[in-house]
Simulated assay, not measured.
Amino acid sequence: MHEHTKRICDFLTEINLPFRFKDVETDSFLPGLKTVNGTLYIDNEKLLYPGDILHEAGHIAVCEPIFRPQLNGDVYKNGLKNGREKQAMHGEEIAATAWSVAATSYLNLPIEVVFHEKAYKNARESLIDAFNTGGLFGQPLLTAWDMTCPREGFPKMQKWIRTHRWINELS
């Protein structure tokens, strides 16, 4: 097992984010990773990039709690099946990205672990630049969901798993 994979999985255990080492037999959005009923399956033999674990775990962590057990496969496709608003899913995508960057900071890993050479469809460099220069990309949602530390702000986190039901407060 790659050193980064071990550190990341130890972190997931520490924050009680559900994951299992399991063969991922089907094609998945990211090689070696699959979300099943809100649990992240990790196939260490097929996993190409340890940082992908953080991004997929970020989807589980930032999902509104009542919908978390319904996360399966490609989480973008889930949003429309279970009645969630597409806009909420896009917000969770950018929040999951920010969450994964906060996790790299917490774990003292380089940001390139998440933004590896095959990540984010050619947006890798601009995302690295945005996070390194204090640009806002997902952090406001983590703040709205009371996940970041009030005094220190991003990337310091006070909660790694979302408990805040923000959508209902908007109606």
Rank of each mutant, 00 (worst) to 15 (best):
M1Q: 08
M1K: 12
H2Y: 13
E3W: 06
T5H: 09
K6Q: 14
R7W: 10
D10V: 07
D10R: 10
D10I: 05
D10C: 05
F11A: 01
L12Q: 10
L12N: 10
T13Y: 04
E14M: 07
L17F: 06
L17S: 13
K22W: 07
D23F: 08
E25T: 14
T26G: 06
F29C: 13
P31D: 10
G32C: 08
G32M: 09
G32E: 08
G38F: 01
L40S: 01
Y41H: 12
I42A: 02
E45K: 15
E45D: 11
K46N: 04
K46D: 00
L48P: 00
Y49V: 11
Y49T: 12
P50W: 06
G51P: 07
D52F: 05
I53F: 05
L54D: 05
E56H: 03
E56C: 02
E56I: 02
A57T: 01
G58W: 00
H59D: 01
I60S: 00
V62W: 01
C63F: 01
C63N: 01
E64C: 04
F67V: 05
P69D: 01
P69I: 06
Q70G: 03
D74V: 00
K77T: 09
G79N: 06
N82M: 12
E85T: 11
Q87E: 12
Q87L: 11
A88V: 15
A88K: 10
M89K: 04
H90G: 01
H90I: 14
E92C: 02
I94E: 06
A95E: 04
A95T: 03
A95L: 05
A95G: 08
T97H: 01
A98C: 08
S100G: 08
A102Y: 07
T104V: 12
S105R: 12
S105Y: 15
Y106G: 07
L107E: 03
N108Y: 06
N108D: 10
L109S: 10
L109M: 15
P110D: 13
I111D: 07
I111F: 05
E112I: 07
V113E: 09
V113F: 00
V113K: 02
V114D: 03
F115K: 08
F115Y: 15
F115L: 15
H116T: 15
A119F: 15
Y120H: 15
Y120G: 11
K121Y: 06
N122V: 00
A123Y: 15
R124D: 09
R124G: 12
E125R: 14
E125P: 09
S126M: 13
S126W: 06
L127E: 02
L127K: 09
I128W: 07
I128P: 07
A130F: 03
F131H: 07
N132S: 09
L136A: 14
F137I: 11
G138M: 05
Q139V: 02
Q139K: 10
P140D: 04
L141A: 12
L142E: 02
T143E: 08
A144P: 00
A144K: 07
W145M: 11
W145I: 10
W145R: 14
D146Y: 08
C149E: 15
R151G: 05
R151V: 11
R151D: 14
E152G: 00
G153I: 13
G153Q: 12
F154V: 09
F154I: 08
M157E: 05
Q158M: 14
K159E: 14
R162Y: 02
W166S: 13
W166H: 10
L170G: 04
S171L: 14
